[in-house]
Design a protein around this nucleic acid. Structure first.
Length: 414
DNA sequence: TCTGGGGTCCTAGGACCC
DNA sequence: TCTGGGGTCCTAGGACCC
């Protein structure tokens, strides 16, 4: 019988900070930035949560709720390092591991009973190994499906282990709020409530035709999830098989909204270089380039362009992004955020004629050299795409301080 | 409350092709 | 001269997750 573990680190960012500064233990700690900064909470300690602080909440709101909390910017490198340590423990435990994010993983534990004993014993062993190797608390959910194990690890928090016996999935999920089902957010919760559907058991009672008629594909997925099935969608993918990214993006919210065209275009150039570099690191070529624009009133638009041939070159990305920008920016309107997004990846550029090919190859070498420079001397050492001269350079650096190319996803509730 | 940044997946309309 | 039907690509937006 299939057996899946879901491992979720408790208050990951905060717990890592406590490792480096034990005096933080037991205190109200908020990771995400200064209390007056423009941003949201990445992680909050349990002491801070008592005051209503939670992740994704604006920092300023968190400050109002809990003014005595210690606000930290956070150290992504540290979190990545700890995440790697956790991943190592998991891989040493069993070969089929998928890291779902920086603080979360799935293990396919099918057929490990002779080695580790019954599921609950295995889970406790792993729980303890992680604690010993990293000093970090974690929670583990175990069951026949990824979905149920995920919900179970959440119910096991903090620092607990929960095994849902085979055939018990429906009675475990039944009494929970529909919001506990991954994929049901604020909006779906509200829509379902209009039909009087509040608990998972309400969902499980409905027939599939009703769900499909009122909620489309989501309805079908929900029907399966309410029964604890992985069938269809993301939860169906195999554990331990790494998948290529489908998009690469960078975006930046300005510390202060701006309508300065020079700053805006220079920022776009910088963001383009950042996505371009990661694209080349993967050895991909992108077909579609997308610009994202958020005005000061938070209204947001995206404008995309698919290229005749996929590209890997910063110059090409910058050219398309700037063209999109010039044709969609309501000139003079104050902007809060800019973003550059690449998608439609191919391993290789499609065939091109000889002349063009030679030119592209030459440019490719220039960018490869620039990437190496950045690796050796830091991201600020090379800027190719223009718009970064003189005093504007400083302004843009202020807007995008010391950018890194590796994205990190914030841990969720925990 | 005044709202980050990096992703995935879904919907829906229109173009275009056969 | 009253109007098919499917498939695929492109674009824009939005829900959701961590």
């Amino acid at each position: 019988m299939r057996l899946v573990f879901h491992i979720d680190m408790d208050a990951f960012f905060v717990s890592v900070e406590e490792l480096y500064d034990p005096s933080l233990k037991g205190k109200a700690v908020v990771v995400g930035g200064r209390s007056e900064a423009r941003g949201v909470v990445s992680a909050a300690s349990y002491a801070a949560r008592k005051f209503g602080v939670h992740s994704a909440m604006p920092l300023r709101t968190a400050y109002k709720l809990c003014p005595h909390a210690i606000f930290l910017e956070g150290n992504l490198d540290r979190y990545r390092e700890c995440s790697k340590k956790v991943a190592q423990v998991l891989h040493d435990f069993t070969p089929q591991v998928s890291m779902a994010s920086i603080d979360e993983a799935y293990l396919d534990m099918t057929g490990t009973e002779r080695l580790y004993g019954p599921p609950i014993a295995a889970a406790h062993k792993l729980h303890e190994k992680i604690r010993q190797a990293t000093g970090l608390n974690n929670s583990i959910g175990a069951s026949r499906s990824r979905l149920v194990s995920k919900v179970a690890s959440d119910q096991a928090k903090p620092n607990g282990v929960l095994w849902i016996l085979p055939e018990m999935e429906a009675s475990f999920l039944g009494p929970l709020d529909v919001r506990k089902i991954p994929g049901v957010g604020k909006v779906s919760e509200a829509t379902l409530a209009q039909y009087g559907i509040r608990k998972v058991r309400d969902l499980a009672r409905l027939d599939e035709t009703f769900l499909s008629e009122h909620f489309g594909r989501l309805g079908i997925a929900l029907a399966g999830k309410a029964k604890g099935e992985d069938a269809g969608g993301w939860y169906d993918s195999e554990i331990g098989v790494a998948e290529d990214p489908k998009s690469i993006s960078h975006e930046r919210t300005f510390n202060e909204d701006t309508s300065d065209a020079v700053v805006l275009e220079a920022t776009l150039a910088r963001l383009s270089e950042m996505v371009g570099r990661r694209l080349r690191d993967h050895g991909f070529h992108a077909k579609t380039v997308q610009l994202k624009l958020r005005y000061k009133d938070f209204s947001t638009i995206t404008r995309a362009k698919s290229l005749p041939r996929p590209t890997q070159l910063d110059t090409e990305i910058v050219r398309v992004v700037k063209h999109l920008f010039r044709t969609s920016w309501k000139a003079g309107c104050t902007i809060r955020l800019l973003g550059v997004h690449l998608s439609g990846f191919e391993g290789q550029a499609a065939q091109m004629d000889l002349l063009e090919g030679a030119q592209t190859e030459r440019l490719g070498k220039v960018f490869a050299a620039a990437d190496k420079m950045r690796e050796r001397f830091g991201n600020d050492s090379v800027t190719l795409a223009g718009g970064m001269r003189g005093k504007f350079r400083e302004k843009v650096h202020e807007a995008i301080p010391n950018p890194t190319n590796e994205p990190v996803r914030r841990p969720g509730k925990d």
